[in-house]
């Protein structure tokens, strides 16, 4: 360190004066006070807000209930969902759908299988499809979005043109095409179809916020500091860009439930009706929709409720993670 070359700056005198003033004031140092409590990170403060958010709690309750039901479906279901227990009650001409009876609160379907049990076990397929579809599209979107957003330039152009082409096809149509191309439809073709349909949305979203981060002051600050490229991307740009993507993922969970149902409804899902699925149940119910609407109502209500739960969570997450709402 070199000596101060300046003669005129009466540093010592100034400091003495300030110190004297601060002493006189007695309490506040120049910089002001800092509370002696542990720091609160962004995630912690978002969680604090969420904990008090009624909308989030409702969404969370619905989602957790759904997860528990799916997890413990075999224990919860009163009967074997594949057993044709009420087959003897089915009268193809006069009464094709047996109504509620003791032990069968919702009645049975056209081959005498317990409706409640099928709904409960059906949650597993729905959960499997929506979680994996969202996860795969999220991973794919993260990779493409990070590539495009972190490097920009021609990599960005190539990736984004590809993504644009995918985006130009309506997502459900894209999912139908992918599912229809599969030789043997199964839940995995549904998952694949939905993840391909949503991948470009994640990619574009992430790329957008990564680009914004690239030009942000704190990334410039990290560059000015001499931080290496990889930590800048993975420690600064990516984590700060994830907020909107996480929110979108919650919302995609909801739409994936509906899309999966739609694909199964159209017969592009798992054809094996020994593995019940809500969309597939809905599809099967359409033959009887005028006389026995309850057959369609229950699976439809389940789909709506679960999608609603995910959406509530997503919306409150969006609000909690929005820096503008923070105080």
């Amino acid at each position: 360190m070199t000596d101060n070359p300046k003669g005129w700056k009466p540093g010592a005198r100034r400091k003495a004066k300030i110190d004297a003033l601060a002493q006189a004031a007695g309490q506040v140092q120049d910089a002001g006070t800092v509370a002696d409590t542990p720091g609160v990170s962004l995630i912690a403060s978002a969680w604090r807000r969420l904990r008090r958010d009624r909308v989030f709690l409702i969404g969370l309750t619905i989602t957790v209930l759904f997860l528990l039901v799916a997890l413990f479906a075999p224990l919860l279901a009163p009967h074997d969902p594949t057993a044709r227990l009420l087959l003897d009650k089915v009268r193809p001409q006069s009464n094709p759908i047996p109504g509620p009876e003791p032990g069968f609160p919702l009645g049975a379907d056209n081959v005498g299988r317990d409706l409640l049990s099928r709904l409960i076990v059906g949650s597993r397929q729905t959960l499997l499809v929506c979680v994996f579809a969202t996860l795969f599209s999220l991973i794919g979107g993260l990779i493409l979005g990070t590539l495009a957003g972190a490097f920009g330039g021609w990599i960005d152009s190539v990736v984004m043109r590809f993504v644009d082409i995918m985006l130009s096809i309506p997502s459900l149509l894209l999912a139908f095409s992918v599912a229809a191309m599969a030789a043997r439809p199964s839940q995995w073709t549904v998952i694949l179809a939905i993840s391909i349909a949503y991948l470009p949305i994640f990619a574009r979203l992430l790329r957008g916020s990564m680009l914004a981060q690239r030009h942000s002051d704190h990334v410039l600050a990290a560059r000015a500091l001499g931080v290496k490229q990889a930590p800048i991307i993975f420690r600064h740009m990516l984590p700060n860009s994830l907020g909107p993507v996480i929110v979108q993922a919650t919302l995609v969970l909801a739409t994936a439930v509906i899309d999966a149902a739609a694909l199964s409804f159209l017969g592009l899902g798992n054809p094996d009706d020994r593995q019940p699925e809500w969309g597939q149940m809905l599809g099967a119910a359409q033959k009887y929709i005028y006389d026995y609407p309850h057959l369609a109502f229950y699976p439809a209500a389940c789909i709506i409720l679960v999608a609603f739960g995910f959406t509530l969570m997503g919306e409150s997450l969006r609000e909690a993670l929005d820096p503008k709402s923070r105080r």
């Binding site: 990170s41 962004l42 002051d217 704190h218 410039l220 600050a221 990290a222 984590p239 700060n240 820096p323």
Partner: peptide, 14 residues
């Protein structure tokens, strides 16, 4: 080194 205008936006919030 550099010191920035907006002290909040130049610090990574995380």
């Amino acid at each position: 080194q550099m010191v920035f205008q907006d002290p909040l936006s130049s610090l990574d919030p995380r």
